[in-house]
Structure formats: C-alpha cells, structure tokens
Write a protein that binds this DNA or RNA. Sequence first.
RNA 1: CCGGGUGUAGCGAAGUUUGGUAUCGCGCGUGGUUUGGGACCACGAGACCGCAGGUUCAAGUCCUGUCACCCGGACCA
Length: 579
Amino acid sequence: MKVSQLLGMRFKEKPAGCESANHILMIRGGYIKQVASGIFSFYPPMRRVTRKIEAIIREEMDRIDGQEVLFPVVMPASLWQESGRYDSIGSEMVRFTDRNGAKNVLGMTHEEASVQLTRDTATSYQNYPFMIYQIQTKFRDEPRCRGGLIRVREFTMKDAYSFHTSQEDLERYYQRCLEAYHRIFARVGVPEVVAVQSDSGMMGGSVSHEFMLLTDIGEDTIVLCDSCGYRANMEAAECIVTNESVPEQPLTKVATPGVKTIEDLCQFAHITALQTAKAVVYQRNCDDSYVIAFVRGDLEVNETKLRNHLGCEVHPALDIDPESGICPGSIGPLGLPEGVTVVFDRSLKGCSMLYCGANEDGYHYGGLSMERDLPGAELVDIAKAVSGGICPVCGKPHLRISRGVEVGNIFQLGTKYTKSMEMTYLDEKGERQYPIMGCYGIGVGRLAASVCEAHHDDYGPLWPMTIAPWQVGVCALHRNKGDVQAKADALYAQLQAAGVEVLYDDRTVSAGSMFSDADLLGAPLRLVVSPKTCSKGVVEFSARDKSFRKDISFTGDDFSAVVEAVKAEIAARMAALNG
RNA sequence: CCGGGUGUAGCGAAGUUUGGUAUCGCGCGUGGUUUGGGACCACGAGACCGCAGGUUCAAGUCCUGUCACCCGGACCA
C-alpha cells in the first residue's frame, strides 16, 4: 500500500470531545470516523487491524472445535418471545415494524438464533457436544456511549454457543474456552488481560467470567487479591470485614437535632462510621414497595448483590412517600413500618454499641446490639468490596480495586434457552433431555481499542506484530534526490514479492510529517531510504518501539539482505506473540 | 433518563457579554524556495454560523422551540 493513495487523514491537533488515548489516536491516525453517537465507520487501517483480530479469533475457535455460522441481524419478535426476552429486555434492544406490520428486533445477541438454528438437527445425544460461533454486527441501543470504540451501540462481536448433554461436559468445555480466550488475548498482544468472576445478569445461568484489561479508562470496577489471585467484578465481588467485639451497652434513645447523615452522626456522637448502621432505601421495580438495606456505616451497598438476594429489580428510592412511615435521616432497624423489606449486610455481624436511626425525626438510638436487639436478623452479603478488605478466598486483607475494560466474557447458561424454546434430544435410553448451553463473547472493535490503549506512546499506537495494519513502513526521504525513488521503489517491490505487508510512504513531504504519519499508522518496523543511506549503500532498519536501529546493506537493486532481515524480525515477533 | 456543556470551512478554535457585510491556525490547490521529527514565502479555493420560527432597518450575536454531539451519573449480556 502506498501512503499517497491511502484513504484517511492524519493530523496533530487533539480532536474535540476525545478523552482517552485510544480514541484520540484512532481519530488522529485516520482509523475511525464517527457517524453518530456510538456508531463508527472504519478507515482501511482500522479494518486491517480488526480483520487480523478476527482471523486470530477464528483460528482459536476452530481449534476448540467451533463451527463458524452466520445468524441474521434482523429477527422476528416471535423468536424472542419464545425465550421471554422480547418482554424482559428493555429499550437497549431496537424493535421495529416492517411493511407487513410484523414486529422485528435487531440482534443484540444470538442465543435464540443459535437454538433456532440447531434444535431441529441436534436431536440425538450422538450430535453432542458442539459449538457454533459467528463474527457479526450487533446493535445495542446504549443510552450512554463513550471512549471512542470502548462503548458503542453498533459493534462487531464474536459470539459462540456450545451445547452439551451434561453439566460436567459443559464445565470441561468452558475450561477449554477459557484457555482459548487467554491464547487469543496473548496473541493479539494483551496477555495482561485477566479473567474475573462476574455477575451473570440477565443472561441467566450461574458461573461466568469476564476478561478484563485493567486500565483507568475502564468502565468496570474490579476487585483483586494480590496474595492469592482472587479476581472479581465489583458486582460479584465478596469481601469480608470484621468487627472488634466490644461490651454491650443499654439501648438508649438520643435526641439528635439536625443529624441526617452518617457524618453528622459521627460528629455528634464522637464515633467513627464503623459504629453506625447505615440505611439505604430502595423500591422494588415491580410494586414500588420499600426495601431498606442496612450496612455498616463506612460501607456502600452493592445493588447487584441486593438485587440477586431479593430476586427482583430494585431502584434507589429518591422521593420517599411521607405517608410510608419511613423517616429519612433517622432510619433504623427497630420500629419500622409493616410491609417494608429489611436486609442486613453481614458487615453488621456481632456488632454492639451501634448508633442507628430511631425512625423518628431528630432521634437516634445508641448502644444497638445486633444479637440482643435483632436476634432473628438474617445477615447476607450485600456490601461493596473495599480496598484493603479481607479476601474471601485466602483470608488476607489484601484486596485491591482497579478499573477494567471488559473485552470478553464466558457464561455457563444451563437450560434457560433450551427449555424455554423446547430444544430437546434423545439420550442413550431414548429419553427426552434438554441440552445444557454455554455462551462466549468477544468484542472485536473494543479489543482493538483496548490494545491501542494498553500499547501506545505520545506519537501513536504501538501495534503488536500480529494485528498491526502493516508489518513494516518504508519511508523514502527526499525521493526526488539522487536515486532514492528508484531504490525505494525497488525495495517496496521486493518486500511485497516476499509476502511482507508493507506501507510505502511515496509522498514528497518533509521527513517530519513522514515520520509522524508512520508513528500514527503504527507499523512495528520501519525502513528509511534517503540520499544519506543510499550513498552508504544501506537502508536504515528500526523498530517503532525503539528496541533497535541498524543499517543493512544492499547492492545495486538487490535488497535481499534487507528483505531477509525484515522477514526474520517479523517471524520472531509473530512467534513471540503466538507462543 | 437526571445533571453539566458544546454546535462557526475537512480539522482545531476566536467572535456571542454590548446586534452593523465572516476571523485565525492546521489541512487543501497553484507557483517558488526547502527537506533526518509535523518547513517557509506568495497567490487561491473552501461556511445557507446545527435546524426552524420570532424580534429588528439590520441577527453568528437577542427571544422561543427543536435536533445533534460531548462529559459525569443512572442504566447495561
């Protein structure tokens, strides 16, 4: 490819409205162009990157016996009604009516389609297990896009679905897929991606992992233990806190005029937040009934865990009905009105000498003892993990919090979809059974953006050799002087003939702009041809990551030594990444 | 959906307070001088100032409405 013909523009100004490095560089380097919020077109360099990522994903999916298929983008509402998700999924799924008045959806995931495709053919246990996958456009009408390709509405995703005749078989395959995912991330150049335990959300199922690139621009919060390797998404993370045992004191009602918050209370009573019980009020989405969550005053409620415990959706109660008997600012566990669901976090276990609201404006209780005053209280885990908290696995207080970008996920789905959509097979005994499913996703564009985010400098992306848009860039400086043009043309031709992916800057621009564009386009290797190098009979060979820089000789129009050196370096880098 | 912000040439911005013929830089075209980290000179092309309505002799600027995009949050397979 010649730069003079390459579509797209590169520039040095920081584009407006870009925050993260990957977004800035992808715009500045002519990789992507925004069409609408969360919707992008790709210029050739970006498409070359994503094609290479897709090729690696294909290889690894095929290696674990995946079969590539292709599902439609548009599906009839009836298919989604079979699983019940037509009604349960909110407005992130685009619904529309076609010319015949039929209701349709745009695919945001393809569990339903995967069952529809296979349920008529996989009717015998002898057809199992199998995995099908596709690489295809998804549309999710996200309310809030951000970070360039990090969070978008339209994106390319590899999604895979496996079908099994036993839980054990699913678990074995799940493990194979987890290993394949690690290979994929290592091969595209981000071996630092970690698998974390996650909440299954509305996917259903039980066990699930998310693959996270740890970076400050990430939208997810990850809890990690540096001692034992425990890793979980904040949504699912467990964390243990302990309380010192202190002697019980009598329960006393205290007048606390003007005290509304935990900070107020601490100041008023000269205590720390650890000695308070904090009440957070929610309402069930289904009937608006109140749920009050109590956590130790220094902690926060993990709403995902609360939701899972209650088995229903809840939302924070912003305007509390004055008739409800709930007294914001002084809510406590004693004397709450009927009909309010109360949940205690296990951080309150064994606490005594607690301060809490008295359910009366201007009054709190002191000396509350969980065991004495609330003997029947069930303590469940609904608190957010905290930095320095105790790891639920190894018991050491080494929990650390980080941000992460989710570049992939894997779920054990169980029979949610096969049961609701009546997919069955006959087992060895001739009995009808529901297959057990797993599903496995990777966001291709988000992964490309994540690699850029993880590996770049001020001048541009540092693409790993496996996914770089071009393997080597040739810069012809002062091409109109001496025989630079002839030599550079010959070098370009010989590299191409050798099967090297080369980007040839054949423009008559200044050295500065040529190098800047080369940096932005991120070829890992660079060859410079100039009057200076030609007079010495050499070509300058260097790496984008500055790991080496050397001269390589040529004779006449024979650049075979250069070509060989380039091929060797490419092979070495590919081997290092592919393992 | 809540809160904050921004829409002026392909890109980045000034001008809006106080209405008076559209400004700068990058990029683009032509010619010339240059050339190892985004060169310089000259000339030139390029804008229904997001859109609609209103006020006014006169609107990029004031008023009303609307759309789009960005940021924080909520939400989220």
